[in-house]
């Protein structure tokens, strides 16, 4: 059961402002979804050793190569000036 206190905590962790009027429905939806996914609690997973998959690296090795396009990622930022991304002050 997700209550309003838990929802506020999750919203804070996720950096997601939830409008007051949506909170009740959202808590209800998430409670329903958790009810649905809780079916996995019945399943016995003891046959799977955690180590076996947790430590397997699936990424291939990096290969150095020149970039073939002209990336301009600063342009993609909503606010930027002179090639820098603009952000609010972090410390007063």
């Amino acid at each position: 059961m997700i209550d309003s206190k838990t929802l506020d905590h999750l919203a804070h962790l996720a950096r997601l402002t939830v409008p007051e009027e949506e909170k009740e429905q959202l808590a209800k939806d998430i409670t329903n979804i958790l009810g649905f996914i809780d079916t996995i609690q019945k399943v016995d997973i003891s046959e799977v050793s955690k180590k076996e998959f947790a430590q397997k690296n699936v990424a291939k090795e990096d290969i150095l190569a020149p970039l073939d396009s002209n990336y301009d990622l600063v342009e993609a930022a909503p606010l930027h000036k002179d090639g820098f991304v603009q952000v609010p002050k972090v410390i007063e």
């Binding site: 929802l7 999750l10 919203a11 996720a14 950096r15 997601l16 402002t17 939830v18 409008p19 949506e22 959202l26 939806d29 998430i30 979804i33 958790l34």
Partner: peptide, 16 residues
């Protein structure tokens, strides 16, 4: 994030 993500996206972020 609250204003621009759609409802289902917000639901999944909170669930995640």
């Amino acid at each position: 994030r609250g204003a621009l993500f759609g409802k289902e996206v917000r639901r999944r972020i909170l669930l995640g």
